[in-house]
Write a protein that binds this DNA or RNA. Structure first.
Lengths: 254, 254
DNA sequence: TCAATAGTAATCATAAATAATCATAATAAA
DNA sequence: TTTATTATGATTATTTATGATTACTATTGA
């Protein structure tokens, strides 16, 4: 049996949202544990299954994420932060959601209420499209050049497209935040985020503890433009949070 | 056995959506491994199969289209038409691809050469993003409101976003074509298609035989604006095709 | 806490598949 | 016919996948 064929069958076994052990797979495909492990590893690396001791499990809810480095998208902290962020959204809201990994997790928890979502993330839009809310989320995508590496739309067309909208809330990912402001690593991303900040009533920054006290290539804006910071608690970031606390309106720790 | 004959048989074997190993093919066609490999390579280069170690797989074998109603997208006719359409694309081209089901199939066959693709189809963009061409397709998405039912971007923002671009080739799906012109069922879709036609050097209509002689809610344009019609042959549509034939520059029947 | 067990990762030799090269056979063009 | 072109199959070196062995690590239960 071909390697690829075997891997397809593994995925098939897991399609029902189940679990497949190394031993079972060895019997099923008549190969050695080493080979099965290698298959499992590859499938896990490409994000198609999740590795557990003794075998692999289906990715279940997040199984439709189309990108490789899925692990990065699914950390417990980021999910908590995302959950807290969506709880701020009320019926009738118009929200900007930018293209970061933290904000992407919001897709899983968005309540099925009437809201309008404006985003430059192809992946977020795809995820929301597949969920097909009953209440009918209205989804608006910005145009522009598609960065296939990160699945987000950037560039002048994306910016001018985004500038057409105004929102109640903007949810942003950052690469760092300190007492002077928020940072990100790409100029094009920063340009988009600035438009979101300027065109929304309130700006919510979603940053896990690893971002606290860190910087980035470009400063997006000062803390005075930030309404809410949602982060998770950790011992190391505690001191830094105190410094930031005074610059912003509200701090949510999850 | 002729080379062409053999390659057709290979494709037949894969029609069911499975894999074919080099060894199996060697026995089946009584040729040498070298020849079979060359066949596999050619078929893979033209995008008709996917190469895996030890053999080839059908394009459908592992490619997971992100939406439910896959069947509709995969009819043999539409695939043939799509294949013929992509063969028109050359290195350096800038192409519009609209959001229909026929045009969507082009994603599977797009050659890995340097081209720029402008589309209002979220699903096409997602599919291309996942394929991650080596040569680096540049993908541009129009902005606008996302119709989750069909996964396409429409509305005034989509239009103005699209109007920024100019292409060599525009590939359009239609709901019908007759001797007077082409038709579609949604005003918003027609608006987008008109922009594509106006902003491209050549317009290619992709319509399977069920569309020939049919109409739709809105007329998009007359046949004089159409450069090429790609369709599949069928007894019923033959007479109608003769009428249409004179209105357009070129007719490709697959 | 400790071993006992089960699962894993790392290494390596082997086997298999592939790409590259070449000579030959089949085909098409002059 | 002769020549040029293309397809084929054999050979080779190279790359890649595999399974056995071993050492390592996590989990379990006393």
């Amino acid at each position: 049996m071909l390697q690829k064929q075997r891997q397809d069958k593994i995925l098939e076994c897991l399609a029902g949202g189940d679990y497949l052990s190394v031993d079972e797979a060895v019997k099923l495909f008549k190969s050695s544990p080493a080979t099965i492990r290698r298959d499992f590893m590859e499938l896990a690396e490409s994000g198609q299954v999740q590795k557990v001791r003794g075998g692999v499990g289906s990715k279940r809810a997040s199984s439709t994420l189309p990108f490789a480095d899925r692990a990065e998208f699914c950390s417990v902290e980021k999910e908590k932060i995302a959950k807290s962020a969506v709880s701020m959204i009320k019926t009738g809201d118009i929200v900007f959601i930018d293209g970061g990994t933290t904000t992407f997790n919001m897709a899983s928890y968005l309540p099925d209420i009437n809201i309008r979502i404006i985003t430059n993330s192809l992946r977020l839009a795809s995820a929301l499209e597949e969920k097909k809310s009953d209440a009918g989320w209205e989804i608006y995508l910005t145009g522009g050049f598609l960065y296939t590496k990160s699945g987000i739309l950037l560039g002048p067309n994306a910016q001018s497209s985004l500038a057409q909208y105004h929102a109640n809330l903007a949810f942003l990912s950052v690469s760092g935040i300190d007492e002077n402001g928020i940072y990100n690593n790409s100029e094009l991303v920063v340009d988009m985020e600035r438009v979101m900040i300027n065109n929304s009533d309130r700006t919510v920054i979603m940053a896990d503890h690893s971002k606290i006290g860190k910087h980035g290539l470009v400063k997006v804006c000062g803390l005075d433009r930030i309404s809410v910071l949602i982060t998770d608690s950790s011992r190391e970031s505690k001191d830094y949070l105190l410094k930031i606390r005074n610059g912003i309106t509200e701090l949510a720790q999850v």
